[in-house]
Nucleic acid binder design. Structure first.
Lengths: 241, 241
DNA sequence: CGTGACTTTGATCAACTTCAAGCTACGTGG
DNA sequence: CCACGTAGCTTGAAGTTGATCAAAGTCACG
């Protein structure tokens, strides 16, 4: 009966995209009892820090986030962005300490779920274990995509892929897949894609000039989704003309 | 009593590095019953193929492997290498289909474990679930490292990091961390590091010339581990002179 | 000894970075 | 309300790194 607020899992509009996906009604209610609390965050506020105890998973309730690793010389690499319904904190599973830091890109909210409690619940809720594995599998799959992107793609392909990735994810959330606002700075995008801000800016300007997208500051509109997809798939044809 | 061969988990010299790590003696015996079979592979033989049913996890018993993804235009990206004690097949957890292919780099052997059976055993073997999560966490952590590598590092740093990574992993297996044979071709290394074979070859030649390593074909000897580590940590100082 | 796969080395070239300057949006205080 | 300051973004020119192209060298194996 605890946490029977309108925002708890059974009534959460993100349930089908989040941890409860595929679980029975009662199971979802049971899962909801594990959610310790919700937490509101301002832009630039940390959800957790690299090296901290990985005791919780964090489900994105609203807003968006950036995860990044700092290496020995203090240089940061953005590892991923998180949108509502996605789970953060999986990177602590190996040793119990977060290997990334995560900050909010805008005003946002997360649901904190103790990992230990989730693991206990696995024995009680059929399908939960499967679901946790699926979430981990999704993280692995998206990391692999990122590796392919960074390994072999030109600047133009990287930027196009980035826009398509956001388009797909916003679409899955029920938002427009062709018009949205970027919650991250150019610096974050560049860093994520292994490029410099200047290169990102130029590639976006090119796509704009070609009429494939319309971009003004952080506002993006994809005018020709098919063409954008083509850029990703057939590299050589689209060298900046 | 099934599979009570000398190579089954309780007697396997890799147990402490593999799935059984941290489990009680009886638990290991129980786990061993889940191992469907061992499979021997020749060089270039596939363990599994991208798109195939992800019904098994594969523990590397001996030899080494390369996993790679082919994208829409048929281009391959090497995602990782696997050494004894490591688990392959985790990339199928999301949708039940492998997102990578894995081939043996040399004569090798794997233990096949049905994922479904593993999940059942989680309720019976305390700690197994935790261990599976830890293995997934390790995969995520290593993918993140790879993302950092591909995102920001110069050719020299990438090659140095690659050598150090192998050194660490061979060391953990009880082999020499300073002298080993590369089981992969230059092409595989280059592809993994997001470089060309020529660049890899030149960087290795440079390191050789500087006396930091001694390399002849696939035989590597790391003469100055500290210096190699320094290259990775303080990039700018070591531009090829 | 010869063939083919793999690797090394050299010369040239292009993509992306770096450096530098100007622009836009936005918030704050006079 | 506007001027000013700052953070973020764009654009241009020059510089480097690593890619590409080309050729020769090495090794394994029949």
């Amino acid at each position: 009966m605890a946490f029977a607020s309108a925002s708890a899992c059974p009534h959460c509009r993100l349930a089908e995209l989040c941890l409860p996906y595929g679980l029975h009604h009662e199971a979802v209610a049971q899962l909801a009892t594990a959610v310790k609390s919700q937490r509101l965050l301002q832009a630039d506020e940390y959800v957790y820090r690299q090296g901290g105890d990985g005791l919780y998973w964090y489900a994105v309730k609203s807003g968006s986030f950036r995860s990044f690793m700092a290496d020995s010389d203090g240089f940061e690499q953005t590892v991923g962005f998180y949108l509502p319904g996605e789970i953060m904190g999986l990177d602590a599973l190996q040793h119990g300490r977060f290997s990334c830091s995560v900050v909010a890109l805008e005003t946002a909210a997360v649901c904190e779920v103790p990992v230990a409690r989730l693991q206990e619940l696995c024995t009680e809720i059929p399908g939960l274990q499967m679901q946790m594995m699926r979430i981990l599998g999704k993280e692995i799959a998206s990391d692999h995509e990122q590796i392919v992107l960074l390994g072999h793609r030109s600047a133009k392909e990287r930027v196009a892929t980035f826009l398509l990735m956001l388009s797909r994810r916003y679409g899955a959330l029920g938002f427009s897949g062709t018009a949205f606002n970027l919650s991250m700075r150019r610096q974050d995008i560049a860093n994520f894609l292994g490029l410099t801000i200047e290169t990102v800016s130029r590639q976006l300007a090119d796509l704009n000039r070609q009429g494939i997208i319309r971009i003004r500051q952080r506002n993006v509109e994809i005018s020709d989704l098919a063409l954008l997809t083509l850029i990703v798939e057939s590299c050589a044809l689209w060298r900046s003309a």
